[in-house]
């Protein structure tokens, strides 16, 4: 009996002393924190994806509270809606931004881009890109090892087994930009999501001259300039043998896509050359 009492007393005393010590330490090292940081952090999506350029959602919240303006502070995942709420929370206003989405600017499916060598190193786009031009003769195209797929925290990208190209899941993509950074060939671009998810873009980044590009890949942009002539809004510029559609100017009339001889201009994911069809009629992906 005595043993039990002794044990209980000792442990209780020990607990009390240690609790007191802990309390004192906590008091001594307490840091004052702006309560608004917690409020802002609660509004943010909490994915900690780093798409805003900060280490995580809480880091962005801290930056929002500490900063004077809302410039350069934007959560791509939450989008405009969340940023409005955040701005309201800290008593500022922010301009609405259009939602964005990742698009893959390469249409060089396996069948259109014959491989000329066999890569046998670690399955990583970045390692392959550092080593050599890639398995095909197009040194700008997608290498298909899925660095983007691994970088995506939202599971919005996957490499299609048939084409060897990444496919973006419109529902899941939050435009955080992780894939853009992961791609060593800079194929993925964040573009305006567009009304009803309609986007027109040049699905090629090959900077070679037309004949070289065409030889390497049947889906290459050959910089023929038909699209830029067809565009009534001056949205298409051709630089370094590649056409680029400025999505802030483009009105989605899709005349360029009808003109494109190789089908490099795509409307959404639709691309008809894959089936051997002429790239003229246009249709939307629902």
């Amino acid at each position: 009996m005595q043993t039990i009492i002794l044990t209980v007393v000792t442990l209780t005393a020990l607990g009390a002393i240690l609790a007191a010590a802990l309390y004192m330490v906590a008091q001594r090292f307490r840091t004052e924190e702006d309560p608004r940081i917690d409020e802002v952090a609660a509004l943010l999506p909490g994915a900690n994806c780093g798409g805003c350029g900060f280490a995580g959602c809480r880091a962005l919240a801290e930056a929002v509270v500490k900063s004077e303006t809302m410039d350069n502070l934007y959560c791509p995942v939450g989008g405009s809606e969340v940023m409005q709420q955040v701005a309201a929370c800290v008593g500022r206003t922010v301009e609405a931004r259009e939602p964005m989405i990742a698009v893959v600017r390469c249409a060089g499916a396996c069948s259109l881009r014959p491989p000329t060598s066999l890569y046998d190193g670690a399955a990583s786009c970045r390692i392959e890109a550092a080593l050599y031009k890639g398995e095909t003769d197009c040194l700008y195209g997608c290498s298909g090892h899925g660095d983007c797929e691994r970088a995506c925290l939202f599971g919005a990208l996957r490499i299609d087994a048939a084409t060897g190209l990444p496919v973006v899941d419109e529902e899941k993509c939050t435009a955080c930009g992780a894939c853009v950074k992961a791609c060593p060939k800079r194929i993925i671009e964040l573009r305006k999501k567009g009304p009803k998810g309609c986007r027109v873009f040049v699905s090629c980044v090959n900077k070679d001259k037309g004949n070289v590009a065409r030889k390497a890949c049947k889906a290459a942009c050959i910089a023929c300039a038909k699209c830029s002539k067809a565009c009534a809004f001056g949205a298409i510029a051709i630089e370094e043998n590649i056409a680029y559609i400025d999505f802030t100017v483009c009105r989605l009339c899709r005349k360029c896509a009808a003109e494109c001889p190789t089908g490099a201009i795509r409307v959404n994911g639709e691309w008809r050359m894959e089936n051997g069809l002429a790239p003229s009629p246009l249709n939307f992906n629902p």
Binding site: S117, D120, L131
Partner: peptide, 8 residues
């Protein structure tokens, strides 16, 4: 066939 060094 191509791979990064080493090849042995």
């Amino acid at each position: 066939m191509v791979s990064p060094a080493p090849h042995a």
